[in-house]
């Protein structure tokens, strides 16, 4: 029986593999502004930020705190306003209901801006070439998927349950998002290599 590895360690390993792939692309690609290369680099950086959000739980806790504080403030404020007007509980409720709905709607949906990735500038010695990078990224993906499956639990390994687990668990949703971005990066790289091998004019 293998020891159960903790999620942060697993995520750190995946991030290291992604960073390795990133530097591999940066070193091997002659034109970084080429469409496929640029998209692959972008997606790798986004996947890295998504994985960084898995380990760091502070934003989620901060959001919960903010929501609570804003709710309390709006309710207290509308009650005080109702007092000032001279109405009782019905007036306070009539004021607080729409105001709370409005504020929770404004806060509610996670307005995530895709963070602008900061690419590490590493003009080091040329590595083994671009052709080996997808294999390394696929290794990263295998680790990521096994971490996700372990997180979901063995009972949920059938697609109908898996869909709902991904929708319900924010950590797993982030892992799935990172996996999607990683797959896109691999796909972009493979299409670039495919174009190169066709040797079009």
């Amino acid at each position: 029986m293998s020891p159960v590895r903790a999620l942060p360690a697993e995520v750190a390993a995946v991030r290291a593999l992604i960073a390795e792939g990133y530097t591999g692309i940066v070193r091997a690609a002659d034109d970084r502004e080429q469409f496929w290369i640029r998209s692959a680099l972008e997606r790798l950086a986004w996947a890295d930020t998504a994985l960084a959000g898995v380990v760091d739980g502070r934003p989620a806790r901060l959001r919960a705190l903010t929501t609570t504080a804003v709710t309390a403030a709006v309710a207290a404020g509308s009650a005080a306003l109702a007092r000032m007007i001279g109405g009782g509980l019905p007036v306070a409720l009539a004021l607080a209901g729409p105001l709370l709905a409005l504020t929770l709607y404004r806060i509610g949906p996670a307005r995530r801006r895709p963070a602008t990735p900061a690419p590490p500038e590493l003009p080091g010695p040329p590595g083994s070439g671009l052709a080996e990078v997808p294999a390394g990224l696929e290794r990263a993906r295998v680790r990521l998927v096994s971490a996700g499956l372990r997180r979901a639990g063995r009972a949920n390994w059938r697609p109908p349950a898996m869909r709902r687990v991904i929708a319900a668990d924010p950590v797993l949703a982030r892992l799935a998002e990172a996996d999607l971005l990683l797959c896109q990066a691999i796909d972009c790289l493979e299409r670039y290599l495919d174009d190169l091998s066709k040797d079009w004019p």
Binding site: T71, A72, A73, A75, A76, S78, A79, R83, G88
Partner: peptide, 13 residues
Amino acid sequence: DPGRPLPLAAIAV
């Protein structure tokens, strides 16, 4: 008397 500010805030939270 839930119409006072503090109880109403507690109930909302």
